[in-house]
């Protein structure tokens, strides 16, 4: 009971922030005046989210930051996976992206708007949607379509517009035929797809998945991953996938590895997974195919270790076997 912390002590944190905020806001506003025009132009062309030297403390007196001086640019339409073991600060980073948490130092810019600016809060949350870990705790209404309508309703759309958004969102995640069902009668994967639809109905440019597959069975995980890849490819939505499943991260275009609140490496899946030491040092496990290749290499077999999925791995191994035969 003594270890009970609600959301890792965020409640406590928020009150501190408001004090910090008022100070920081003054500086920010001045900064904004100077380079507002310039920076928004740049942002519109390339980066949807810019993280600049961001640090965040849950408890300043205890010293250790949850996110420690992180800088990262996320490009429009990108599919980025953030990897890290428990407590590496990846979930905190996720919450910093849409202003649920405000950085203690540095700043997060979404489409050039700082998350510190309270007046832009709705705009930022509309742009960067969030899908959380537990599907049960993010569905608000007891009928699927009413839950999906929650976002558009908050944004003040007319009933007709809301209805259209709900329809297209539910169709995008293949849940349209479930629109009149009660959420508690759905499977985990289906619930999580409803949650995705709820975010989609706000028509965001970017969706952050904060370990959204962690509580699902393999089937549900596949459903969510397929939906997510589809959204990235067909709807051109920027995807940020926070996860500790290597197989999922391997499907991203880019991976950032987090350790002790810092980004310890960033690059394509092939680059990241060929660095065996980096992965084991951060307390992660390689995807099984890559693990196999690394083990072979350790045993003295000269093999290319960059394969990150089963098909690539089979290809590498069959080539190797053919070579052996010839020799």
């Amino acid at each position: 009971m003594a270890t009970l912390q609600f959301g890792k002590g965020i409640i406590l944190k928020k009150s501190n922030n408001t004090i910090n905020n008022s100070n920081n806001n003054c500086n920010n506003n001045c900064n904004n005046c100077n380079n507002n025009g310039k920076s928004t132009k740049e942002n519109n062309s390339q980066n949807i989210i810019e993280i600049k030297n961001v640090s965040f403390y849950y408890n300043e007196t205890e010293g250790l930051p949850a996110v420690d001086n992180v800088s990262l640019n996320i490009k429009r339409g990108e599919f980025l996976a953030v990897l890290g073991h428990n407590g590496s600060g990846k979930s905190t980073l996720a919450k910093l992206l849409n202003g649920l948490l405000v950085p203690d130092s540095g700043e997060v810019l979404v489409n050039g708007l700082s998350t510190k600016d309270e007046s832009q809060s709705i705009n930022i949350k509309k742009t960067v949607g969030m899908v959380f870990q537990n599907p049960d705790n993010q569905i608000i209404a007891s009928i699927v379509e009413e839950d999906v309508a929650f976002g558009p309703e908050n944004l003040g759309f007319t009933p007709k517009e809301s209805r259209e958004r709900v329809e297209s969102a539910l169709k995008a995640v293949n849940m349209w035929e479930f629109r009149n069902k009660a959420p508690h009668k759905l499977s985990g994967g289906q619930k999580q797809r409803v949650a995705i639809a709820g975010v989609l109905a706000m028509q965001p440019e970017c969706i952050v998945f904060d370990e959204s597959t962690a509580m699902l069975d393999p089937k549900g995980r596949k459903e969510v991953m397929d939906t997510l890849l589809n959204l990235n490819k067909n709807n051109n939505i920027t995807i940020i996938l926070i996860t500790h499943f290597m197989e999922e991260a391997a499907r991203a275009k880019k991976i950032a590895v987090m350790n002790n609140g810092k980004i310890s490496a960033a690059g394509t899946p092939k680059n990241i997974f060929s660095d065996y030491k980096l992965i084991t040092d951060t307390g992660l496990a390689l995807p099984q195919p890559t693990e196999l290749l690394h083990t072979l290499k350790e045993k003295g077999i000269n093999v290319d270790v960059s394969a990150v999925n089963t098909t690539d791995c089979i290809e590498v191994l069959s080539k190797l076997l053919l070579k052996e035969k010839e020799a």
């Binding site: 959301g7 919450k95 849409n98 649920l100 709705i122 949350k125 509309k126 949607g129 969030m130 959380f132 705790n137 993010q138 608000i140 929650f150 976002g151 908050n154 944004l155 949650a195 709820g198 975010v199 706000m202």
Partner: peptide, 9 residues
């Protein structure tokens, strides 16, 4: 948090 993320005000 989920409600806040969906622009609840």
């Amino acid at each position: 948090e989920a409600m806040e993320s969906r622009c609840y005000n």
